[in-house]
Design a protein around this nucleic acid. Structure first.
Lengths: 206, 206
DNA sequence: TGAATATGTTAACATTATTAACATACATAA
DNA sequence: TTATGTATGTTAATAATGTTAACATATTCA
C-alpha cells in the first residue's frame, strides 16, 4: 500500500497550476498551496520542476502552443491579405480576453526569464514567426528586395503592436468592450479603424 | 534629542520607494526593505500609507501626473492633426521606455485596484481624457453628430491601442528597437506604418 | 496644564520560496 | 533473487515578506 504517488504527479501539478493560474494569475500561484491542493508535500514540486519559475515556464509553454495553433488556424483561412491581418488581430485579442492570465504570463513581467528557459524562448519565437509570416505573407513573395523585406518586417511589427495594445488595454481594464455589441465586432472596428482610416482621419472639411 | 523623525517621513518614504521601483519594479518593492533603507522601523510606513498598495498608489498617481503633463505638452504643440497624433504616440512610447517600471505600475496587473483608490482612478481618467481630447480634436469641432462622436471615440481608442502596444512590447522585451537608429525614428516609423499604410499594404501587383 | 492625536517602536503571526537531510519505492545489474 | 542506485517522496529548517497588536513618546490644542 503505497502512500506515494504513481508517477504522474508532474502532470497533476501542471493541471492544478493551470486552474489556479486561470483564477488568480501568476502572482497568486503559491507553490505551497499548489502542493496542498495536489495532495502532496510542500517540497514535492521541486522534484519535478525548477522551482516556481519552472512551473510557470511549463504552463507558459503550453499556453504559447495553444495560442500559436489558434493563430495558425486563422492564418490558414482563405481571405484577402488585409482581411487576414484583421482576422489575425482579432484572434490575438480574443485569446487574450478568453485567457487573460495566460496572456499575461506569456508577455508580462512575471514571465520566467527567457534566457533561463530556452524552450520558453523557442515557443515565443515560434508564435512571433507565425505572426510575422502571416502578416508579411512571405510565402507568396520570393521576389522581395531588401527594402521590401525591411518594410514587411515593419508592417508585421505594426500589426502586432496594434493587436497587442488592444489586448493589453482590455485585460488590464483600461478599455471595456461595449456590452451591447459582440466582442468580435468591437475588435474588428478598432483594428479596421487603424487600417482603413484615411477618410475618417482627414480633417480637411471637403 | 529626538530619535524620532521630523514629519517628512512620508515624503522620504515616497522618494525612496520611487528609486526602488525604478530599479526593481512594483514586485521588488518590499515594505520592510523600504523601511530599513529609509532608516525607520518596519511598521512605520503603515502610519503614513494604507499598506503596500497605498504606497504604490501614491507613486502611481505621481507618475500619472508627470505622464499627463508630458502628453499635454506634446498635444499643445502646433502641428497638423495627423502629425500631432503621431507625436502623441511617440511621447507615449518614449515615456514608457524611459520609465518602464512606472509605466507598468500605471497600467499593469500590479496596479492597486482603482475602485479602492479613487485618486488613482481620477489620475488615470485624466490622462485618458488628454489622449482622447487630443486625438479626436474635440475643441475645434462643436458641430459633431452622434455618429461623429462615436467615431471620434473609436479613433481615440485605436490610436491609444497602437501606442500602448508598441510601448508594452518594447518594455517587455518582445521588440528591441534597433540600436543604429534613433528611438524616435523607430517609433515614428511604426506609428506611421499604421496610419499611412494604404500603398504598402496593397498586395495587388499593379 | 492636560487630554487627544499623530507618529514612532518592538514583537508577533501567518504566509511564502527554497534547501537540507532523510526515507521509501522501483529498476536494473550482479 | 539480492544488491545497489536513482527517482521520488517526506519533514524540518531558514530567511524573507505583509500586516496587525500592544505599547511609547512626541505634538497639538482646548
Amino acid at each position: 500500500m503505497s502512500k506515494y504517488h504513481h508517477g504522474d504527479v508532474r502532470n497533476v501539478l501542471l493541471r492544478e497550476a493551470e486552474t489556479i493560474l486561470r483564477k488568480e494569475g501568476p502572482g497568486g500561484l503559491s507553490l505551497r498551496r499548489l502542493a496542498r491542493l495536489t495532495g502532496v508535500s510542500e517540497a514535492a514540486p521541486y522534484r519535478h520542476f525548477d522551482g516556481k519559475d519552472g512551473i510557470l515556464a511549463a504552463v507558459a509553454i503550453a499556453a504559447l502552443e495553444r495560442f500559436g495553433e489558434r493563430l495558425e488556424e486563422t492564418a490558414r483561412c482563405d481571405l484577402p491579405h488585409e482581411e487576414r491581418i484583421v482576422a489575425l488581430g482579432a484572434a490575438y485579442v480574443e485569446f487574450a480576453i478568453e485567457h487573460p492570465q495566460h496572456f499575461r504570463l506569456i508577455f508580462g513581467r512575471e514571465r520566467p526569464p527567457l534566457d533561463q528557459y530556452p524552450d520558453l524562448r523557442d515557443a515565443a519565437d515560434s508564435v512571433f514567426d507565425i505572426l510575422q509570416r502571416s502578416v508579411t505573407n512571405l510565402d507568396q513573395r520570393g521576389d522581395m528586395t531588401l527594402a521590401d523585406a525591411a518594410n514587411a518586417y515593419n508592417r508585421a511589427l505594426a500589426a502586432w503592436s496594434r493587436a497587442h495594445g488592444i489586448a493589453t488595454l482590455v485585460i488590464d481594464g483600461m478599455i471595456s468592450p461595449p456590452l451591447d455589441q459582440p466582442l468580435q465586432q468591437f475588435v474588428f472596428g478598432l483594428l479596421a479603424e487603424d487600417l482603413g482610416i484615411p477618410a475618417s482621419l482627414q480633417n480637411t472639411k471637403k
